[in-house]
Each structure stands twice: as structure tokens, then as C-alpha cells.
Design a protein around this nucleic acid. Structure first.
Length: 934
RNA sequence: GCCCCGGUGGUGGAAUUGGUAGACACGCAGGACUUAAAAUCCUGUGUCUUCGCGGACGUACGGGUUCAAGUCCCGUCUGGGGUACCA
């Protein structure tokens, strides 16, 4: 009987769907295990071979954990709001909903074909009103909350209002309250608060709400008519479409993620995520400790506040630089300099991101004509304007210490400003000395101190003289939350008398209205402004017209899977308490500073308000690598229709052409297929090497135009999805990026065929047994047991450490050994099938059934290995054990175990190393190598 | 520039805590079966040297620690990813 994967696979996929084999139960005695994949955006191109890489890995773990007795939750869904469907709608007029549904249908079909053990009853789609009702609900909770610094968590806004009513507010005194207090909110008393009108109260509270409407500089893309996040911009143009992006001040909905900066940073330590990913988040949050410091403007009582991490270098300040957008620029500019300064500021403002990128090394700046007094020396220090200072970070002003900061150094060199050395150790003729070590000089009371101590003393002095305060700054910015787009969740806000109000819970969902066109209106309003005039709150008040960004729906979806159909809460507390954190999360590293930060933020927020009990969404996270395309090339001899094989091309003048990888096998071109591929190659001639045409190759991104796109469907069609699953895992370590190539696919496919033959071969029973499985109940031999238990042990360890490629090697070794031993014994083959079933579930199920079992193999317990079967007869020691003292001895290979021990103990080298101590254990790893625990 | 991760045969990659480097697979070469092909099976395959037994070298490069280094330490080269004037 042949291995007929097509029939087997479709039969079992039908069986699993019909019996709901993988439905997760909410509760029970078994321990829970939650395996989550980052859900895909259903694009029009369908699934390519890169998608399933992570899904296969998570599916292996899910199936393994089920065998191991866990109650496994392994769901899948779609991140179905997004720009491509909207762009398509703009071009064709087709509703994004239709496009999205069509794409999802294709994805689902492709996913089903691979045989994943998803619990499809829990599917979520972020664009379904039943889902985004709760995205909107969470938004409202965030809107109705503020961050209390003294309790270090988010609280309902009512508690803040109570504070205002009783104590009023003074930002200079009360730093337990966060918000935009730099804006110098006017202080008020409790009585005054009560007397404020509703608009005034709303405006004040807006400074504290965690979702707020605020003025912020945004990346505005005129071509797309929308605001883009930093991660949606590459090289100064929009990632999608490559349109130019401007910086623009706009009133925008934002999320006060900065309130959580410290907790987002601290939480990383306890997470089992890769170092590079945690590092990326740390850099993104960008904590820097330093101090604020005020410089008084000469002959004025106004001050300029700067932030510095190097207060120790304060005596090296030779000028102060303001960002062009700084609010004091105008008032500081003297009449003589007015024209140049204005010209500079205008130019800097209009300089797009791209231009700034292009001349990053070009130093520009102007002098204002004004001075500040140095806070310690009292000397006059000039005030400059330079666009290397960013308005958005710190205070938008820096104290320039050219001797010890490379940017200040270039600026000073360029404009001929003084460079004063205050830390010894560098050569200031050549470059600045930025290192945070050395001895302070020319620095009054700091002289002779090491940098570390000087920093401390400087902060002390600054605080004593009331010049500033030790301070922590974060690079992390609040996240802009509004998008001027159609295909997203409507923000559940309406405006009455110019005051924004949140919808009540029973008014949700606020359903996305129909529009005639998906473009912004002529006067720049978002597409939702095109909705019919009846789309108003209570028929009267305007709704917010912007929609939520792509990351909104994905910031809490892991919770919805726990209770996917609940109409009365986002997820029942009982269920979130049961399922807790995601135990294993698998997805791409491109989400390091986007999705993975936002989902942590929302999780912490929901915990603060008591809706869930976990602080972090995912305990362990693995980034699967990217799969690149592997293109093939043919080389046409210039000016002819002759093609030369790659090994001989150096003898000719050639040009390379991409060739369809489907007519190339292991880099060998199917010459006849090539002639048929394109009309102009009909009469092609070939210069062959060894009778073959060998193509060149290159690793590139997968793309239609390079003819190198591999869909999983082709492989599944040709070899079956068990082969696809094995092969994707066999390609290399999960986390590594690698080019896709099918060169080795015959290897894993051959393995499955070999396995099949193990069950069907006419072994001991003799020839002519006819159709039917040929497995016997005989007692296994010692060496057969060793093969099996060795394999179980390795597979178990491999899965536990996510090393799927090596486990497949171990299966191959096992099957090779059993084939050599002509072993067809039930006691060996059955446990082996169970081990294999997470990897190649269809064939495992089929053979399991053929062996006479009626239940699905996925319900069977994973076999345990027995250490006793692993012991080698010739050496009576465990094969490897932890040993502190390890050394090599040259011993004759013929010794028995007892003789080895005697020989080891009598050996001169051993005696020397032991120094008279008695070893607790002697382990012979190999006949030559001895490990001892002393 | 800064941060992170890598560099092992012709190829993808093994080597879990420092302990027989190159498992497993691809490719290649030779052979068996076959009229032939496909499929399948067997043998060989790091480099140099040797008829052979064997020997020497070998994990990017240069040093070091150790009885023992792909693995640890220092320096150099190099590939990939992240980030970008963050004071």
C-alpha cells in the first residue's frame, strides 16, 4: 500500500473539523497552556511560505502539550482592519469589508490545508462590530482614567475630580498627579474648581486623561490624507506607497503610554523574551537619568530650562542651544539678528524628515544675540538656535558642552565657539571626549572628582541652589491614536458644545457608517465626514470623525480568545483568571516596538482597573525568522538567444534574467519547460555543463516580479502538508532568517515514505502478504528499546527547547535504525507515532487508526522515556552527568567498566587533580574522557 | 555612530553545562535492481598526505585561559537586524 498523503490528509482534516478535536475547554483538572500566534492581516496576496513557519512551530507545541496532559488554548483570528483593503476600496470602490472577507476566505482555506489544530470556534476578527464594540469599550475606560503617581497605577477619573473638588490643584506643589504639567496649568482651589463651567473642567481633565485630545506634532502624509506612526515611515516616506511625509501640528487623540514608561521598562526583566527584543524595547523607551537646570537670561528674570545627563560638565558650557520651535526664540532674538533667525526658523520648520535625513552631517544654526548667565560662574553664555536640538525631547533646549559631546563639538567647531575641557582623558584637537570616566578639571568645586561622583555632587548643588532638579527623561512618546481613515474602529466620542463625551456602554458598538467614497473630503476632513447627515449622536451631535490605528484591535485580542462570543463583557473575569497569560507567543520581530509595546500597555491598564489579574500579556515569546525568496537566473549571451549554464558564464558576455523557479529543480533548468515559458524563448539554445543547464541563484525578498514566490499550496499539493510541516521546521532554527529553497524537501518526504513502509513492509511475515498493515506484537529487543527511548528523550528535550529542526533529524535516525533492524513491533512503533504526531499529524493519525485504535491519536498520552533502556552494556555508567572536574585520559578501549574505574583511580594525573579528595561519582563519558563530581 | 545577534564541509545545518567537531539532510561520485526511466536500496564524501595502514591540519583571523575551547576572555575582520542628532 502506497503512502497516499492526499487522501489521508483530507480525510483527517475533515475528521478533526467534524469532531471538534481541538476545542479548548474552559476549566477542568488539567493544567492550562495558552499558545498564541500573532494573527495575520489578510492581504490579497494570500499566505506565502513565510506565514506558516511560526504557525507550524506553535502547532507542534500545542499538540505536544495536549499529549502531555495540558488543557491547551490555541486560537486563530484575523487583524482585519488595515490600509491595503482601504487603498483597494479607493481605487475600485469595492467596500473594504468585501475585500477583507474574500481574503479571509482564501487564508482560511490555505490554513486548513496545513492541518493546524486551531480552535476555530474562538476565531476573532477585529473588524467585526461584535469585536470592536469591546475595543471601543476599552478606549472609553482609558479615556475615563488618569494615572496616579502615588499609587502608581491608573484610576477612574472620578477620583481625580474628587481631589480637585476638595484640594484643588497646583502643579508646582503636587507631583503625585501626572499630566502635561509642563504646560504650567493654572493652579486652582477646590472652590474655584466647583465654579468652573463644564468646558473648562473638560479642558483641565484632558491634561490628565490616559486617552486625550491634544496638540501634537504628527507625521502627516498629504497623499494618503492621514497621520502615520513613526513605524509606518521608512526613510522619510510612507512605508506603503512611498509618499512624502510632513511634520504638522494637529489636534489628535493620543494615548498616554508615557505614564507607563517605567513599568514597561521594569516588566521586561521578568519576561522570557529574547535579549535583542527586550533591548529594542529598552532603547525605544529610552530612559535617561539626569537633571533639569535653569539658566537665567541676562538682564531678565526669565529662565531657559535644559535637561542634561552630564551635570558634571556644567563648567564646560560655552553656549546654550534652543530648538527652532522653542517658545522663547522670538522674545530672545535681538533686533540685529531678527531677519536671519526668522529665516532660519522658517527653513527648519519646512525641512521635511527626508531632507533632514539626507544632510544629517550638515551643521546649521544661528545666534540669537542674547545671553544667559552661567548659574555657577555668572559669566555670559551666548544663546544659539540649532536644528540638532529636538523640540520634542527634554525641554527643547540644551546646555552645550562641546568638549564632551560630539554634537556640541561639531557645532562649536563649525561656528568657532570656545571648547572648554572639564574632564581629562581626550584629545580635544581631534574630537570631543564623551566617555563617562575621568577626572574633573577647570570646574571649581568639582575639581579632582571622578565623573560618577561629580555628577552626584553637581545635582546636589543644583538642587540646593534651586536651579533645577534630578530628573528622569524618557524617549518614549505618547502614541497618536487617531487616523484620518475609513477602515478602522470609529472612536466612540461625540461632541456637544465643543466638549468631547464618551458614549455609554449600552450605546456600543458605534458601527462604522457607510460612505460614498473612501477618500478624505475636499476640505481635508476624514472619510467618516462623508457619512450621511443622520449619522449623529441622538441625531444631533457630531461623532468623532477619525478612526483608531491598526494597533488598537491587536492590543487586547489575546483576551478575547478566552471568551470570544461574550456579548456582555470583553471577557468574563472567571475565564481571564483561568487562562491568565499567554504561555507561548510566536510572531515576527518587526512588532518589537509597536504591537508588543502597546499590548503590554493595555494589559497593565486593564489590570490597574481590576478587569484582569495579569500584568504582562505573554510569558514567553519567540520571534520566528523571516523566509526570504530564492531567485533563479539564466544567463543570456548578449545579442543572441543562447543561454549559458552558470559554471561557464565567465567565458561569455552575458546578462542575467530572472527565471520562474517552478521550472527549475535543484538549480537545474527544465529546458523544455523554459522554451514554453515565454514566446521569445521558443527557439532558445543552451550551452550546457555536464549535460545540464545549471541556473545561478540569489536570495531576495519574495516578489511576483522576481518569479520566486512560493506558496505553501504548491508544496502541499506535490508532497502533502505533513511534508510541508516537517520541511519548514527542518530548514533551520526557528528564530533564524533563511532563504526558502526546496532542495532538501525530498529528504523529509522520503522519511515519511520510509516510515510508512515500516508499517507496510512485508518484513518477517514473508512476501506476498498482500494489502494491509504488517505490525507484530513480539517482544522488542534491547537495542530496539534503546533506539525508541533515545528518540523519546531527544524529542522531548528538543520540543521543550523549541529546537524543532534537530528533532526531525532524530526521527530520521530512529526510522533508519528501525528499518535496518527490520523492526515492525507494535511496542516500538506505537510510541514512536505518538512522538511524531505533533510534527506530522495526518500520517500519525492514519497509521494509528490502521493499528486498530478508534480514538484520535491527539488524545493519547505522550510516552515517557525510561533511563534504564539508555544504559550502555559495556560501560556501567550513565552516558552523561553533570561533572565539575573533567579531564582526558588515554585508556585502552578494551577495558571493562570495572577496570576503567580502577585504572582511573590509580592514574597519576587523577591523583594529582584530586589532591587527596574522594570523588563522589566517577562518570565515563567516553572511554577516554572521565568526569568526576568531587 | 550606538545597541543586539551571528561567522562551522560544495549546501542547509548538528554539537543542550567547555569533553570523540561536522549528527541529520541536500548535492556529488560509484554501484545494485530495470529494456529504460522513475522509485528504492547499498557504498563513499572536511582538507592535505599515503597504494594502503596511518599521519598532519581543521569551526572568519591573531592572541590568551584550561588536562581539554566551535563553546570562555582580549583584539581584528566580516555578515545581518534594530535605532538614529534623545542632550
Amino acid at each position: 500500500m502506497e503512502y497516499n498523503f492526499k487522501e489521508i490528509e483530507s480525510n483527517w482534516q475533515t475528521y478533526w473539523a467534524k469532531h471538534k478535536t481541538f476545542a479548548a475547554k474552559d476549566g477542568g483538572d488539567k493544567p492550562k497552556y495558552y499558545v498564541l500566534d500573532m494573527f495575520p492581516y489578510p492581504s490579497g496576496a494570500g499566505l506565502h511560505v513565510g506565514h506558516p513557519l511560526g504557525y507550524i512551530a506553535s502547532d507542534i507545541v500545542s499538540r505536544y502539550k495536549r499529549h502531555k496532559g495540558f488543557n491547551v488554548l490555541h486560537p486563530m483570528g484575523y487583524d482585519s482592519f488595515g490600509l491595503p483593503a482601504e487603498q483597494y476600496a479607493i481605487q475600485t470602490g469595492q467596500h473594504p469589508k468585501i475585500t477583507t472577507e474574500n481574503n479571509i476566505a482564501v487564508y482560511r482555506k490555505q490554513l486548513d490545508k496545513i492541518g493546524f489544530s486551531f480552535d476555530w470556534d474562538r476565531e476573532v476578527r477585529t473588524s467585526n462590530p461584535e469585536y470592536y464594540k469591546w475595543t471601543q469599550w476599552i478606549f472609553i475606560q482609558i479615556f475615563n482614567s488618569w494615572y496616579n503617581k502615588s499609587t502608581n497605577k491608573a484610576e477612574p477619573i472620578e477620583t481625580l475630580i474628587k481631589v480637585f473638588e476638595t484640594k484643588g490643584f497646583n502643579c508646582k506643589l503636587d507631583d503625585t498627579l501626572t499630566g502635561d504639567i509642563e504646560k504650567d496649568l493654572e493652579p486652582f482651589t477646590g472652590e474655584e474648581w466647583k465654579a468652573f463651567d463644564e468646558k473648562k473642567k473638560s479642558d483641565i481633565l484632558m491634561n490628565f486623561r490616559l486617552a486625550y485630545l491634544g496638540e501634537s506634532v504628527v507625521n502627516w502624509c498629504p497623499a494618503l490624507g492621514t497621520v502615520l506612526a513613526n513605524d509606518e515611515i521608512k526613510d522619510g516616506v510612507s512605508e506603503r506607497g512611498g509618499h512624502p511625509v510632513e511634520r504638522k501640528l494637529m489636534k489628535q487623540w493620543s494615548m498616554r503610554i508615557t505614564a507607563y514608561a517605567q513599568r514597561l521598562l521594569d516588566g521586561l526583566d521578568a519576561l522570557d523574551w529574547t535579549d535583542s527584543l527586550k533591548e529594542a524595547q529598552r532603547n525605544w523607551i529610552g530612559k535617561s537619568e539626569g537633571t533639569s537646570l535653569k539658566f537665567t537670561i541676562h538682564s531678565s528674570d526669565k529662565t531657559i530650562e535644559v535637561f542634561t545627563t552630564r551635570p558634571d560638565t556644567v563648567f564646560g558650557v560655552s553656549f546654550v542651544t534652543l530648538a527652532p520651535e522653542h517658545e522663547l526664540v522670538e522674545s530672545l532674538t535681538t533686533a540685529d539678528n531678527k531677519a536671519t533667525v526668522e529665516a532660519y526658523v522658517t527653513q527648519a520648520k519646512n525641512r521635511s524628515e527626508r531632507e533632514r535625513q539626507a544632510d544629517i552631517n550638515k551643521i546649521t544654526g544661528v545666534f540669537t544675540g542674547s545671553y544667559v548667565d552661567h548659574p555657577f560662574t555668572g559669566k555670559q553664555v551666548p544663546i544659539w538656535i540649532g536644528d540638532y536640538v529636538l523640540a520634542g525631547y527634554g525641554t527643547g533646549a540644551v546646555m552645550a558642552v562641546p568638549a564632551h559631546d560630539s554634537r556640541d563639538y561639531s557645532f562649536a567647531k563649525h561656528f568657532g565657539l570656545p571648547i572648554l575641557e572639564v574632564v581629562k582623558g581626550g584629545d580635544l584637537e581631534k574630537e570631543s571626549y564623551d566617555a563617562k570616566e575621568g577626572t574633573l578639571v577647570n570646574s571649581d568645586f568639582l575639581n579632582g572628582l571622578e565623573v560618577k561622583n561629580a555628577v552626584k555632587l553637581a545635582i546636589q548643588e543644583i538642587e540646593i541652589h534651586n536651579l533645577g532638579k534630578g530628573k528622569v527623561n524618557f524617549r518614549l512618546r505618547d502614541a497618536v491614536f487617531g487616523r484620518q481613515r475609513y477602515w478602522g474602529e470609529p472612536i466612540p466620542i461625540y461632541y456637544k458644545n465643543d466638549i468631547p463625551y464618551a458614549l455609554a456602554e449600552n450605546e456600543l458598538p458605534l458601527v462604522l457608517p457607510e460612505v460614498d467614497k473612501y477618500l478624505p473630503t475636499e476640505d481635508g476632513e476624514p472619510p467618516l465626514a462623508r457619512a450621511s447627515s443622520s449619522w449623529k449622536y441622538k441625531g444631533e451631535f457630531d461623532y468623532e470623525h477619525s478612526t483608531m490605528p491598526g494597533w488598537a484591535g491587536s492590543s487586547w485580542y489575546f483576551l478575547r480568545y478566552m471568551d470570544a462570543h461574550n456579548g456582555s463583557v470583553f471577557a468574563d473575569k472567571k475565564l481571564t483568571d483561568y487562562w491568565q497569560q499567554v504561555d507561548l507567543y510566536i510572531g515576527g520581530s518587526e512588532h518589537a516596538t509597536g504591537h508588543l509595546l502597546y499590548v503590554r500597555f493595555w494589559t497593565k491598564f486593564l489590570k490597574d482597573l481590576g478587569y484582569i489579574d495579569i500584568e504582562e500579556p505573554a510569558k514567553k515569546l519567540i520571534n520566528q525568522g523571516m523566509i526570504q525568496g530564492r531567485s533563479n537566473f539564466v544567463y543570456r549571451v548578449n545579442g543572441t538567444n543562447k543561454f549559458v549554464s552558470t559554471g561557464l558564464k565567465k567565458d561569455y558576455e552575458t546578462s542575467a534574467l530572472n527565471v520562474d523557479i517552478n521550472i527549475v529543480n535543484n538549480d537545474v533548468l527544465d529546458v523544455e519547460a523554459f522554451k514554453k515559458w515565454r514566446e521569445d524563448f521558443k527557439n532558445a539554445e543552451f550551452i550546457l555543463e555536464d549535460g545540464k543547464y545549471v541556473c545561478g541563484f540569489e536570495v531576495e525578498k519574495m516578489s511576483k516580479s522576481k518569479f520566486n514566490v512560493q506558496t505553501p499550496d504548491d508544496i502541499a499539493e506535490k508532497f502533502g502538508s505533513d511534508t510541508l510541516r516537517l520541511y519548514e521546521m527542518f530548514l533551520g532554527p526557528l528564530e533564524q532568517s533563511k532563504p526558502w529553497n526546496t532542495n532538501g524537501i525530498t529528504g523529509v518526504h522520503g522519511f515519511l515514505k520510509k516510515l510508512w513502509r515500516l508499517f507496510y513492509s512485508p518484513l518477517p511475515g514473508g512476501e506476498g502478504q498482500g494489502e494491509g498493515i504488517n505490525v507484530v506484537d513480539a517482544e522488542p529487543t534491547k537495542s530496539e528499546l534503546k533506539t525508541l527511548h533515545k528518540t523519546i528523550k531527544k524529542i522531548t528535550e528538543d520540543i521543550e527547547r523549541f529546537s524543532f529542526n534537530t528533532s526531525i533529524s532524530n526521527f530520521m535516525i530512529c526510522v533508519n535504525e528501525l528499518t535496518d533492524a527490520k523492526c515492525n513491533k507494535r511496542a516500538i512503533l506505537e510510541p514512536l507515532l505518538i512522538c511524531l504526531s505533533p510534527y506530522a499529524p495526518h500520517i500519525a493519525e492514519e497509521l494509528w487508526k490502521q493499528l486498530g485504535h478508534t480514538e484520535s491519536i491527539s488524545t493519547v498520552a505522550f510516552p515517557d522515556f525510561n533511563e534504564a533502556h539508555l544504559v550502555d552494556d559495556s560501560i556501567n555508567y550513565p552516558v552523561s552527568v553533570n561533572g565539575k572536574l573533567k579531564f582526558t585520559l588515554e585508556l585502552p578501549a578494551t577495558l571493562t567498566a570495572q577496570e576503567v574505574e580502577t585504572e582511573v583511580m590509580n592514574n597519576e594525573q587523577t591523583k594529582k587533580l584530586l589532591e587527596g579528595k574522594q570523588p563522589k561519582k566517577v562518570i565515563v563519558v567516553h572511554k577516554k574522557i572521565v568526569n568526576m563530581v568531587v
